[in-house]
Amino acid sequence: MRRFNRRTQVVFLAALLAVMLLGVYLVGALIPESAYASNYLTAKQPPSWAHPFGTDSLGRDLLMRTLKGLSISMTVGLAASAISAVIAVLVGIAAATGAKWVDAVINWIIDLVMGVPHTILVILISFALGRGLRGLLIGIAATHWCSLARLIRGEVLQLRNETYIAVSRRLGKGSGWILAHHLLPHLVPQFFVGLILTFPHAILHEASISFLGFGLPPEQPAIGIILSESMKYLSTGMWWSAVFPGLLLVLNVLLVDKLGDQLRRILDPSSAQE
């Protein structure tokens, strides 16, 4: 990858991701339920031209099921990471600009949330809210804002001490104006990088919670469900039922992670000249 400079890589990755997202969404939306309906005549078939990913124990086409599952996972991931990024910005700014006790309380909550393993927290929250999509979404969103909130709090604290903010005040600008014109625009890149970097986490958590049986209901073809079901048949030699859906998930996550990382490096002023 060294032959391409960082900006080109980002554009390339973003394009690839866009194609994948769009493709998965379109396919996911367009696939009729019949495409992955049960069919006992074709159960447990290894990959073939008719079924490139093979079929599962109920004879459902795994390619179609994986695509559908991925589109659900991505919806959950995107929504959850967007919500958690918004929470992070609000909480981060509140901590940095609010009274001392506000900062203390927020820091305490962050420590608390970060101290408990995410998986357990997500399970508890989504269970409390009644399982299914809504509970899972809120559960993931509520656990993934902490590190970004910390980052933004630090950023705002540093910004507040910038000379140009003090100058702005002496030029007659009020706090609201300074927030809107100096602070928020500065946080936009952080927001998007944070969002993109949370995205793969959210997808993985969604998959793992569903895998454990606490997430989406089993009738929905989520990746976690597919993997969880394939576990039962792995020992009977049905390797394809886990390998292909798993690979597609990992590929997706890696792609988004790489994009987020490259974007962060570009926006990081210390590596700006590269």
């Binding site: 910038e162 000379t163 140009y164 002496r170 030029l171 007659g172």
Partner: peptide, 14 residues
């Protein structure tokens, strides 16, 4: 607007 304005040593910080 403050009628007393300060110019700093390091303009890039202001």
């Amino acid at each position: 607007v403050c009628p007393v304005q300060l110019i700093f040593q390091h303009p890039e910080k202001a």
